[in-house]
Write a protein that binds this DNA or RNA. Structure first.
Lengths: 344, 344
DNA sequence: TGTTAGCACTCTTTATATACGAGTGCTAAA
DNA sequence: TTTAGCACTCGTATATAAAGAGTGCTAACA
């Protein structure tokens, strides 16, 4: 349906617009050294491309601007693969080189480096710990009324939660309880913990400990707390650099959204799909209608556990960002898979 | 030096400007029902106030705008005390009513409510845990190479850290070590922990456990992690509402600063002083030159442990905000003091 | 002596007209 | 099929004028 020349011109127009943020006209295009057609020819092709919906005009006699459909086609069919500079590769590898600081710090660094490398806003959803298995449970009494429940996983992650002790419980009871829980629950994945707590230990504890229910409830809650990983956002203010966000109301919309964690979670829910590109109104959120979002999930083994994403203007350097996000997500998958699968 | 009438006029001008964000002229002022002077009289007084540096003009024939010196005088001498609506008081009290969720959640709520109540940006520095005392220490081995160190305080706060185990350490050794540490360190404040670990336990452990040093080091590090409380910022985008921040570059400066935690820490370092008001360039930070910051620290007993603050335009509702921040900081001091002093 | 009316002046804002330039669509010629 | 040419459109920039809000100063008034 599209001739080679139309493809070529569409690609050049979008490339140019991504660089300059200015509507591109036939005259300027034809002056480029690798463009051999006259302005008139280009105008004809442009008119066709516009009719097909790939280009738009900002007003009757302006140059052309890519439409969302145009970007979509560009991303699906016209992207040149692109490769990473060696310096970028080493930057990425180095994030996980020093594992001493723990996963969270590393994930935090991913967000920072992503935003610095791209000049866009980065979103990183840290790995969820559902699959991690209970290594050890503790209940530390604080005073007569309260205690802290602690869950340590086989990956070194620690969940903790303060809770009120039932009236008149004895230190010996607590110890008994901890023993039962450790005995029955060690090795259970966090995602199963809630169920197992009630099914496997309730009967037993009922016999030994009065008022066991309140305690079980708190434990179950502590376990359920981390179904989703932690969210990190890097370069929140990078959007100020984009000329199409000179309008303060647009910036505000995006900024507002970035403060709402649950909306962000929706955007970056981990999936098995590879790179996902959402352009403008392809994003459900109203606030994203002038933005594009590129996401890729990373996995432990086959199970997607987290996501990295880049949020930028529709006029985004798709090629570069996709390459980068692809590389990084695979790198994270490798590192995490090695880390967690040898551990268990 | 200032006549009563000058004080009165200065106050009305600033009040008016805070409300309207518009330079205020003599004519409009004189039309107010509680102003009995003619425009000409007011102009004369205005000229005097300007000469003394309390007012400024944006251009030769504009109305007057308060200078920083004007705001300063207003805050120091002209503030009407103001009181909180009952609904606001209950909103504040209710934050700590439900202690179940732990301090951190409560502090988070403080930030949210502060920004909602004021329409400015709120900054809340959570309580530091230096004074809290060790209740219990644990070392949970994860695999042959690593373990998690856990410190529980008498306030229910939990610190944890993953560390590498020295080669060839035995499970029995670890247990012995935990016993020694608990024996010696229970009741020690976190701020002393680092020192005590080396002074009081090193000798003893040396005798019992080979390669104890690496382990001690990790424990000491875990303890040192929380010298400062956690930072919460509410209503980051509220600044977009301020007409003097229509300029995107100004917004950017402020937004950029809000992303830099260490700069924020400098602004809200807890002190014993009461309410502090910093107007415009009284703040050292370049980015704050068009903002005012109102801070108040809250304490446990006599020891300031955290800070709440409101960041807004220089044209801020000082009276309201000061009343609110004062009330809230005292409330927090009361609640926390009761909570932590009865606990120990 | 303090207050006020009057007036000329300043400066911003808004509206209007004009010129300029980048770009288009269409027609006709190559 | 391609391209040169040309009239036309529309946004941007510039100049000019008019309106309006506010000031400072002078002189009159109580």
């Amino acid at each position: 349906m599209l001739t080679d020349r139309q493809l070529f011109i569409l690609q050049i127009i979008i490339d140019d617009f991504i660089r300059s943020a200015q509507p591109v006209g036939s005259r300027n295009l034809s002056k480029k050294e690798d463009v051999l057609y006259s302005p008139a020819t280009i105008r004809n092709e442009m008119a066709d491309l516009e009719e097909m919906g790939f280009l738009e005009k900002t007003h009757t006699s302006s140059g052309r601007v890519p439409s969302e459909k145009g970007y979509r086609y560009y991303v699906d069919h016209l992207l040149s693969p692109g490769s990473l500079a060696r310096s970028e590769q080493t930057a990425i590898h180095s994030i996980f080189a020093d594992r001493q600081n723990g996963i969270e710090k590393a994930v935090q660094n991913v967000a920072t480096i992503l935003s610095e490398l791209t000049s866009y806003t980065s979103i990183v959803l840290g790995p969820k710990f559902n699959d991690h298995k209970v290594k050890n449970l503790q209940i530390i009494p604080i005073d007569r009324e309260s205690a802290v429940a602690i869950i340590v996983t086989d990956t070194g992650h620690v969940e903790n939660r303060l809770f009120s002790l039932p009236e008149g419980i004895e230190a010996a009871d607590i110890e008994k309880m901890v023993n039962i829980l450790n005995d029955r629950l060690t090795g259970v994945p966090l995602s199963d913990l809630h169920r197992k707590i009630y099914h496997e230990t309730a009967e037993l504890m009922k016999r030994h400990i009065q008022n066991y229910e309140a305690v079980l409830k708190m434990f179950a809650e502590a376990a359920g707390g981390s179904e989703l990983g932690k969210l990190f956002i890097g370069g929140k203010t990078n959007i100020f650099n984009q000329p199409e966000f000179r309008d303060i109301e647009k910036v505000r919309l995006v900024m507002d959204m970035m403060e709402k964690e649950n909306e962000i979670y929706e955007l970056v829910r981990p999936t098995k799909a590879g790179i996902r590109v959402k352009i403008g109104t392809e994003n459900a959120e109203q606030a994203m209608e002038d933005c594009s979002l590129i996401t890729a999930s990373y996995s432990v083994g086959d199970e997607p556990v987290g996501t990295i994403a880049i949020l930028g203007p529709k006029r985004m350097e798709y090629s570069r960002v996709i390459t980068l996000v692809d590389f990084l997500s695979h790198d994270m998958t490798n590192v995490l898979t090695r880390l967690y699968n040898t551990g268990s």
